[in-house]
Write a protein that binds this DNA or RNA. Sequence first.
DNA 1: ACAGTTTTTTGATCTTTATCAAAAAGTCCT
DNA 2: AGGACTTTTTGATAAAGATCAAAAAACTGT
Lengths: 236, 236
Amino acid sequence: MDFSELKSVCGGCTIRELCLPAGLTDQEVLLLDQHMSHRQPVKKGESLYRTGDAFKSLYAVSAGFFKTSILHEDGRTQVTGFQMAGEILGLDAISTDQHVCDAVALEDSVVCEVPFDRFEELGQLMNNLQRRFNRTLSREIVRDQGVMLLLGSMRSEERLAAFLVNLTHRFSARKQSSSELVLRMTREDIGSYLGLKLETVSRLLSRFHDEGLLSVRGRNIQILNPEGLNRLVGTA
Amino acid sequence: MDFSELKSVCGGCTIRELCLPAGLTDQEVLLLDQHMSHRQPVKKGESLYRTGDAFKSLYAVSAGFFKTSILHEDGRTQVTGFQMAGEILGLDAISTDQHVCDAVALEDSVVCEVPFDRFEELGQLMNNLQRRFNRTLSREIVRDQGVMLLLGSMRSEERLAAFLVNLTHRFSARKQSSSELVLRMTREDIGSYLGLKLETVSRLLSRFHDEGLLSVRGRNIQILNPEGLNRLVGTA
DNA sequence: ACAGTTTTTTGATCTTTATCAAAAAGTCCT
DNA sequence: AGGACTTTTTGATAAAGATCAAAAAACTGT
């Protein structure tokens, strides 16, 4: 392993401002970086961690795409989120010292491992880091409550539209095309996340296609009418 | 206001171990307490805060019962949780410095106000407090993901059973009767939380009643067959 | 205690989404 | 490139829960 490369991982990272180092000074980033970041590839289909695994580290997605899902006794699973570059995996495990969901790479990915006990120590020393981290945790709570709104109050069509709009926002924040989406997950994953069956997701995509909102070719989706899609969300 | 009573609020609080001071030493509790806790009554029906309000403080429920709900543009609302003694309100506001939900008292209640900037300073000084608080935030994330599972994967009957079982657990952790529930919220509130219409909630309660699982008299619910109720949860 | 309001229950019917099924398209592996 | 597997699409039908409606019950404030 190339040690010189391991240093200053965050410093040169293009998504630094979307990730844990957001809002830190260069000096602070260097400290965070040199003491903690450790890059690690995860192959498509592999689990980064599984339910029940001991919690040691948080993981920042450096590149790639993940899904997290929780398991019900009877075998049912619920996809709880899709994570892309800059987003943090493992926040839910802090509470119990065990992971309570599975994190699976949906494409070949790279994560930065952040050993949590050292991160907590650093937070104690670095006021700013701790304050930012509180916000990161709180942001995840807000995101989850948005999903509750989606699952509890929206109809299928609104859910899918909201999901697609959310993806476009996140892609464009990462300077990726927000009109040409390449979905990394199956229709079943989307359905699980949205509380729908995969057939319903497929039918809705076909309908959106027929209505000229977007063009679907398998997992390649081109948004043709973003305003129209937006209008579907939040219209009772 | 009686100043001598304001000191050591937490110290003598019966739910101390369910609240922010959980796991702190007596000395640490005293510090937390004297610098921060400020008790405050909230009448039934009143809002503790509303969406858009500036975020100043967290609130620990000392006594009573709250609901939180988020608002959709078009007037729809989604109840995101019910909070009882020891639970913390306002965690979602840390991320944006604005409250993103409404918190309404469902009965005459008392909260302890915790000014957040001072709390963050104290966390910086008190290692243990900060670590506990990270866990509090993470626990809320886990709770929210449990609600996602409920809304995304369970049928109406399972949702209501899970809701009732959850209430009994939380009541019994507070040494209150877990077989005689007095619901503080309307059927509509329950429905909103569970992603169901109020009529569906009412019908399900009637059915559970007919099946001998519980006895319903308005908002008074007596659990007659807790195992049966448990069996409904997590049975596909 | 009473009038007015809100909440709850129950019935009849309708809509949305799930389920079952089968073919088409896409992906993976060697 | 070809065969095996997985994923996606589409159709027909079923079921769960929503909607509409109206009466009964429970609260509220005076």
